[in-house]
């Protein structure tokens, strides 16, 4: 399935936003995926990462997953990375499948982060290579293969010798936002990082993979985060239903003191209470919101509608 990303110029800066970002925010999110098939599907197996994982800055109140037609089997468990994952299988012949995730979470602001106070990147890389918590996020993964020369050189530009890991990572985040165009027509789910780097365009998923690849090229641990981003309507307009989208960003490990810091290269900034986390892993493949294998079906079309609504929690 394709992952539409939010448009990066949707983010509106302002005093009100800044104040809001310092308070916890409760969200109701709805994520509807509809598949239409050209031919009857006899059976379908699904794996969904569509429930928000709990972590220190995020509380999951109540989240549900509804699948129509009704699946014969639904099981839930925690995956290797600690994300909730749901398996569902259905054997009712169908031409249309609708998966609705309803999510109710509260997101707290991140603790203060001073990039210039983080350790030098070489020390972080050396430490990360042997720590169980970080080493698997340094190694190549299915969607982020070993960096080629172009990517390594690109990455090295942000991390001169002795550079603070946080500073380099923030520079990288901003530069991807500034120099790359958000263009949903430029890439597909299988566009390799090298092409994103050459063409300088893509969507949030591409930018996240690019940034992860660049960090790993230097031995720095980076995780792929799947989730949602709250958007504001253009000034004076009503917010459109279903206009939000799945989003993806990056966590970079900045040493034991700071731990994992969420950075959003699509929007060129550190993540805050605008970001709702679903799951994290090595790359998109580990946390794909909805993966399925079907029998039959012929051609198919997908429609995705996402709503991210802050609710008054006071």
């Amino acid at each position: 399935m394709s992952l539409p990303a939010r448009r990066k110029d949707d983010a509106v800066d302002g005093e009100a936003m800044a104040a809001a970002a310092r308070r916890p925010v409760r969200y109701k999110c709805t994520h509807v995926t509809r598949y239409h098939y050209g031919d009857t599907v006899i059976s379908a197996h699904m794996l969904a990462h569509l429930a928000p994982r709990a972590h220190p800055r995020q509380t999951n109140h109540n989240s549900t997953l509804t699948i129509i037609p009704w699946p014969g089997v639904v099981t839930g468990r925690s995956d290797w990375f600690g994300n909730p994952v749901t398996y569902a299988a259905l054997h009712t012949p169908h031409r249309e499948l609708k998966v609705t995730a309803e999510i109710d979470v509260t997101v707290s602001p991140p603790p203060p982060f001073t990039p210039d106070a983080t350790p030098g990147w070489e020390d972080v890389a050396a430490q990360a290579a042997s720590l169980a918590e970080t080493l698997e996020f340094v190694r190549p993964s299915a969607r982020v293969p070993l960096a080629d020369t172009a990517l390594t050189l690109f990455a090295a530009g942000f991390f001169p010798p002795g550079q603070r890991v946080g500073t380099g990572a923030m520079d990288l985040t901003r530069r991807i936002h500034d120099d790359f165009s958000f263009d949903p027509t430029a890439t597909t789910v299988s566009t390799p990082i090298s092409e994103v780097l050459t063409r300088r365009r893509g969507v949030c998923q591409d930018f996240a993979h690019l940034m992860i690849g660049a960090l790993r090229a230097l031995g720095l641990p980076a995780r792929y985060v799947s989730g949602y981003l709250r958007t504001l309507p253009p000034p004076g307009k009503e917010k459109l239903k279903g206009a939000d989208a799945s989003h993806a960003w990056v966590q970079v490990w900045c040493g034991e003191a700071d731990g994992w810091i969420d950075l959003d290269p699509t929007n060129g900034r550190q993540c805050d209470t605008d970001h709702v986390t679903l799951a994290w892993g090595r790359d998109y493949d580990d946390v794909c919101p909805l993966r399925g294998v079907i029998m039959g079906g012929g051609g198919h079309g997908v429609l995705v509608a996402v709503d991210v609504e802050p609710v008054d929690d006071r």
Partner: peptide
Amino acid sequence: PPALVLGDPGFLRACHG
């Protein structure tokens, strides 16, 4: 050493547990 296992592409995370 953790890298011996977690760094091995043959360690299938889906099979853990």
